[in-house]
Structures are given as structure tokens and as C-alpha cells.
Amino acid sequence: MAMRKPEADDTLSRMHRQHAKDKENDRVETGSFPVVARKPKRTSSLDANRNKARLITNVFVVLLCAMLGYGYVIQLNNTRSAYETMSEEELTRLISETSNQIQQQEQRRDELQEQLNSLQEASDKQQEAQRIAEQNEQTSGILSGRLPAEGEGVTIRVTHGSIEAVDAATMFSLIEELRNAGAEVIAINDVRVITQTYIADGENGLICDGQTLSSPYVIKAIGDSQNLQNAVNIAGGVGSRLKVKFGAEVDVTSSDLVKIDEVASVPQYRYAKTVE
């Protein structure tokens, strides 16, 4: 009873509560689920830690890439001193190779030096030979009458004999006398006297090397002028014979510069050959 009493007393309030509940249930939309509450957000301290870690790794990435680029550039600048990066073995190999090369080059240089020496020697010899040949050419040119010559000498003028025409034998002996006296180059009128020169008697006077000589005969001789003069003027010599026998005037003039421009053509040797 005691229990019931308050219940009965409370009937009104119970109905009231029931009504309120009903109202509330009426307002609830059927078929929908109650919203599940979100998980509570992480605490701010954890969040900060994560951000910090990400920042640190980013910094690491930047740092590592910077190291890579740095090392790359350094190595680029470093490749010039290639020897420093070589191992001992490579260096010794390099040295031996280089010394080998040096030896070869030196050998080659010696060979070339030898060649150069022999070539120089040969060229010296050739020069010497050429010098001698030039000398020979000069002397033999003068001797054979190929070259004009000048020098100290005499000019002898022999007029046509008043008693008798000057004959070839006398003229030849005059030339021989001059030669004996050391005449190096002789010319009669326009004819250069060489070893093969002949003088013959012709109808209109003397013939010398195929050319008719006309008087007065002018004989030019290069040599010691005193000797030549003496050779002609000596008593009983060819000069006096010319004067006495032929009645010719002989006029010997010595001069410091006798010029002989006449040249003889070089004979072609048909039979004579040089002995090698």
C-alpha cells in the first residue's frame, strides 16, 4: 500500500512524463540513424610533432640534394688534376710507359741526327766539288778560250813586212816565244789563240783558224809584261828577225790592263774521251 500510494500520487506526473516522451519520439524521424559523433581531433601536440618530422625530412632532402649538386660541381672542377685520383699501380705504369716513350724518342732523335750529319757531310762534299768544278771551269775556260780574259800584258803590233810578207812560221814562232815567256792568253787580231790554233800562209796574207788576218797584226798577250816584252825584243829573237828579214815594224806596248774579248768556240772532240 505504501508503495502504491506514491504511485497513485504520481500518476499525473507519470502521464506527464509519458506525454513528453511520446512527443519526443514523435519528433524523431524514423529510418534515420543517429549521427555518429566524429572522433575527437588529435591533440595539438601530436600534430606539431608530425609537422616537425615532415619539416625535418624535407630539410634532409634539400640537404642531400645540395650535397649531390655540390659534389658534382666539385668533381667537375677536380677532373683536371687527374693524376691525383690514380692508384699507385696506374702511376707506375704511366711512368714506365712515359720513360719507354722517351727512350724511343731519343733513339729516333739519334737516328735523325745521324742522318742530318751524313746529309750535311754530303752537302759539304758537294759544295767542295762544286767549288773545284767552278775553279776548273774558270781555268779551263780561259785555257780553252771559252771565256774572255783581262790582265797585265803586252800588245804587239806587227806591220806588213816591207821586204817580204810575214810568213806563218815566223808568226807562229812569235806566238811560241810568247807562250814560253809565260803568256796565259793570246789573241791575234780577232782570233783567240788556243791549243788547236794553226797559222797558215794564204793568198792574201796569213790564215789563222780559217780566218784571214790582215795587217797590221795586233797580238795581245796576258802575262808578265816584262817577260813578254823581253821575249819579243831579245837580241836575235823573233822581234829582230821580223825587223831584219821581213822589214816589218814591231811595236811592243806593255799595259796593266790588256783585255781580250775574243773567244774561241769549244771544239767537239770526236776521238778523245775522258778516262773515268
Partner: peptide
């Protein structure tokens, strides 16, 4: 970050 780091490294290296 990698590209940035590379550029920084090259510039510093130069």
C-alpha cells in the same frame, strides 16, 4: 625540395 636542394648545391659548389 629536391630541385631546390640541387640548385643550392650547384650554386654553392660554383
Amino acid at each position: 625540395a629536391a630541385v631546390l636542394g640541387l640548385i643550392i648545391g650547384v650554386v654553392v659548389g660554383i
